[in-house]
Simulated assay, not measured.
Amino acid sequence: MRDLIAEWRLDFSGIKGQPELTQYFATMDITEAFLNDPYDWNGPKQPHVCATEADMDGALTMQLLKQITGTPVLFADVRHYHADRDIWDLCNSGQHATWYAARSDDPAENLGRVHLYPEVFFFPAGGASVHHLAAPGEMTFARLTRRDGAYRMQLMLGAFETYDQATNEALMKQSTWEWPHAFARLDADAGAFLSRFGANHIHAVPGDQRATVRATCDLLGVTLDEFTRAS
């Protein structure tokens, strides 16, 4: 992937993955995680946005957020809603950058919380899942979706949460334990979110970046669809 990115001078990329790679070659979880990271086995580097499932509206969202924050951008499935806690388990194969495990400038601190596990039955070609739990903190969630063929930026504030080890493990096991997880509390009513949010993937960056995202949308002429508990 690094060779292809250099040869084709790509600003960001996506990998289709299923079913060809995941059935007959190997999964790209490690590749996707470390492309999105600010480091790899060669040392520090700029994150290269890479979206799984060749979700290029997701990659475009991530590229905008990366330019705003300079940090890796989370890519995740909207996988499961724990109604009893009002939190979402954002979980997608190995796609989460390992940086989110601790959000530390020291790669060893992040990677000390990461485990590689054999892929589950979805991916018979094998490879490794990049398992970790995202560190807690305030986050901005965003996603470019389309309505009647036009882009809209769906935006909300929220936070990642973690709990005691037993609770973390029990919650992860309600979906796919081997994959990376982020427990997210969104400033959005669950019913409104499910009825309006226009994608199965969502993206996040640390802190409250909403003002800059709003300004970016205004400059680009992109409609803003903002969620809050009040709306």
Rank of each mutant, 00 (worst) to 15 (best):
A108V: 11
M139A: 08
E109A: 15
T140E: 00
F141D: 00
V120R: 10
E138G: 02
L111D: 12
T140R: 00
G127N: 06
T140V: 01
L116T: 05
S129E: 04
H131T: 09
L111W: 11
A125D: 06
G127I: 03
G126Q: 07
A128M: 15
Y117K: 12
P107T: 12
P118A: 11
A108E: 14
L111Y: 11
F122H: 13
N110E: 03
P136I: 02
G126L: 08
L116V: 03
V120E: 13
F121W: 11
E109K: 13
M139Q: 10
A128H: 11
A134Y: 01
A134D: 05
L116N: 01
A108W: 10
F121C: 13
P124T: 13
E109C: 09
F141H: 02
F122G: 08
F141W: 08
P107K: 10
P118S: 11
A128C: 14
L116K: 08
G112A: 05
L133M: 11
A125E: 07
E138Y: 00
A125V: 13
V120G: 14
G137Y: 04
L111F: 09
P107A: 12
F122L: 15
V114C: 03
F121L: 11
M139W: 10
V114H: 05
L133Y: 05
A125I: 07
P107R: 12
L133Q: 09
F122K: 14
A125Q: 07
T140P: 00
P136W: 02
P136E: 01
G127A: 07
P107F: 11
L116S: 08
A134V: 15
R113G: 03
E138H: 04
V130A: 00
L133T: 08
F123A: 11
V130R: 02
N110L: 10
P118T: 03
G127T: 04
L111E: 10
E119N: 13
L111V: 15
G137S: 07
A128Y: 13
L133V: 12
G126K: 09
M139N: 03
V130P: 02
Y117M: 08
N110A: 07
L116H: 09
E109N: 11
L133G: 07
L116G: 02
H131A: 13
E109H: 09
L116D: 00
L133N: 02
H131N: 15
P124E: 12
N110F: 02
P136T: 07
S129A: 08
N110Q: 04
N110T: 06
A125F: 14
R113F: 00
H132M: 06
L133S: 05
V130Q: 01
